[in-house]
Nucleic acid binder design. Structure first.
Length: 271
DNA sequence: CCCGATTCCTGTAGGC
DNA sequence: TGCCTACAGGAATCGG
């Protein structure tokens, strides 16, 4: 389940290998993703030179001189780089070959991902224009969250997972961040002090940074590794640990559905 | 505007 | 062993 650290790890893995290279072939094996892959994508991309691989929220942005390819990995997507002629695996949906020597493959069993071509300025694209700040943006502060949560009655966990508020906080890291900040996930967003929102900001950044660091450990093997992605080395403190003792030593971790998603918290150290 | 519910999809796990 | 069901979740969309 790619969350922001996984997407950023992917960007750092594929970017240096592909930037500056020219597309020599594109094959769409299955266009049925969250949005259909443009039928004319092969013609559209042919001969283009990749200038940069960037990231905005959980979107990867492959930038060319004339436009950009927006890629989202959904919840089961991954990108891999293989040599031409490597056997396709089930659910390898799109292959983009660079310089006839490296193939970028989009693999996505559940097909919640997407691959969209645009020539619009990216900031104005409908997929990107409503997104809130990145977690490391200086705009993302306790004061900002306090202001944005004014009169909001929804659970704080849903609030921080709202991508128009802040991007990159998925279900797993939302539980982890709130645990670290000592805030109960079901507390109404509008009933949390600025000071406590400040703690949430710090916690979100720390959790994402640590997960990113863990992902980075397998970066050098990115191309050939078939093992577990590095971010699984990130130690989850509450997610998936129902019934286990919290690291605070006082509480037993509980699971509760909030906003149709499983949420995990310690009743002793989160309020 | 706000918020909850629903939808897309398939691999995996658990019950029988 | 095999069948069935529940569950996982990002984000768009819809309805109240």
């Amino acid at each position: 389940m790619p969350e922001l650290p996984e997407v950023e790890t992917t960007r750092r893995g594929v970017g240096p290998l592909l930037e500056g290279r020219q597309i020599s072939a594109v094959k769409v094996r299955n266009p049925r993703l969250r949005q259909p892959v443009l039928a004319s994508l092969p013609q559209r991309l042919d001969g283009l030179r990749l200038r940069a691989v960037e990231r905005r929220a959980k979107y990867l942005l492959f930038r060319f001189d004339v436009g950009s390819l927006i890629v989202h990995l959904g919840m089961s997507g991954s990108l891999r780089i293989v040599k031409p002629g490597t056997a396709f695996k089930k659910h390898d949906h799109v292959e983009i070959t660079f310089d006839s020597t490296l193939c970028l493959r989009l693999h996505d069993p559940r097909r919640f991902g997407l691959m969209v071509w645009t020539e619009e300025p990216l900031a104005e694209h409908r997929l990107l224009r409503h997104l809130g700040p990145e977690p490391w943006d200086e705009q993302f502060t306790g004061a900002y969250l306090r202001k944005g949560s004014h009169r909001r009655t929804a659970a704080v966990k849903n609030f921080i997972m709202d991508s128009s508020i802040v991007v990159g906080v998925g279900n797993i890291y939302a539980s982890e961040s709130l645990h670290r900040a000592g805030v109960h996930p079901n507390r109404a967003a509008g009933r949390i002090s600025q000071r406590r929102y400040g703690a949430i900001v710090v916690a979100v950044r720390e959790v994402l940074e640590e997960a990113l660091e863990a992902g980075g450990t397998t970066l050098r093997d990115f191309v050939h590794s078939d093992g577990e992605p590095g971010y699984f080395r990130f130690k989850l403190k509450v997610y998936g640990r129902t019934g286990q003792r919290c690291s605070c030593e006082h509480g037993i971790i509980r699971q509760q559905v909030i906003g149709q998603r499983s949420s995990f918290y310690c009743p002793k150290c989160q309020h």
